[in-house]
Design a protein around this nucleic acid. Structure first.
Lengths: 154, 154
DNA sequence: TTGGTTGCAAACACTTTGCAGCTGA
DNA sequence: TCAGCTGCAAAGTGTTTGCAACCAA
């Protein structure tokens, strides 16, 4: 298991949030099953955003018996615990934001397909601008803005 | 037909763009059919954004015989003419932007479901902020930000 | 006439649901 | 033991496609 004290630029995410999941589930009268463990293992390495479909196939890589319905149902449970949040990505599929505690938005590059996080300050600027506009209260974690990244529009 | 010289705050859209459609289609060797007329009639009154599903049912109101496949196919054609542009809305369905010439983004209220246009100045602020952030070039017409409108978060 | 179009039906991809049987606590 | 979970299969969305018949130009 890697040390957490590495100097990671944009990675102050509390990965250990997942460690408490078994306990939290049981405390709520729910169960910790192999299938849920598989999904959580996959989620651990997917900070940011993933489509349900991708999660399903990643789970399948680890455990052939993984079933879509189980994944969807488990994601619902994890969402109630605030560990993931779902929205819709640029391609219109269910997309899950992992550990949405840090509410940042995403930028999607239509050319290279990569995604980028909107920095907190920039996100705040957007939130403020829209609040001033129509008194709109933005849910930043649901924001995915598409366009072209620096490398692709030069 | 309403006069165009009314003082409409955010409505300098050239609705007459639709008038040339039959001619443009024919000039391209395509046909002007009753079904296409129905769809264009529906689109005329839908500046902004609509889901494909909504367009289909609106068309059905006017002409019982409208078929989904025809609507989708016609939308493809209209997209090639730059009269609509498709993306994906907050709920993940195909969403069409009508007359995308005026590139503004949208705000979607998760509480009441209404949509609002982001004012040009505000949109420009967002574009600038993201350009400054990562050199990202935003395609504003594809932006739909969700949250709560003033009336719903008070 | 004839090639673009249409409607139908079937195929698709993704997500949800019902239910009998299994299993973690 | 026994609720919660799982897998399967079937149903449900919304979108796409193949094809024979149709019709605008």
């Amino acid at each position: 298991m890697p040390q957490v004290d590495e100097h990671l630029i944009d990675d102050d995410i509390d990965t250990s949030a997942w460690d408490g999941v078994p306990i939290r589930l049981r405390a709520a009268g729910l169960r910790w099953t192999p299938q849920r463990r598989t999904l959580v293992d996959v989620l651990r390495e997917h900070q940011g955003h993933v489509t349900a479909t991708e999660l399903i196939s990643r789970c399948r890589e680890r455990d052939q018996t993984t079933t879509p319905s189980t994944v969807y149902r488990t994601l619902d449970v994890l969402e109630e615990f605030g560990l993931v949040a779902h929205g819709h990505g640029h391609d219109g599929r269910e997309e899950y934001h992992v550990l949405p505690g840090e509410t940042h938005g995403h930028l999607y590059c239509e050319a290279c397909g990569r995604q980028w996080e909107i920095r907190p300050e920039t996100g705040a600027a957007i939130v403020d601008a829209l609040a001033a506009d129509l008194g709109f209260e933005v849910d930043l974690s649901h924001v995915t803005i598409s366009g072209h990244c620096q490398g692709c529009h030069d």
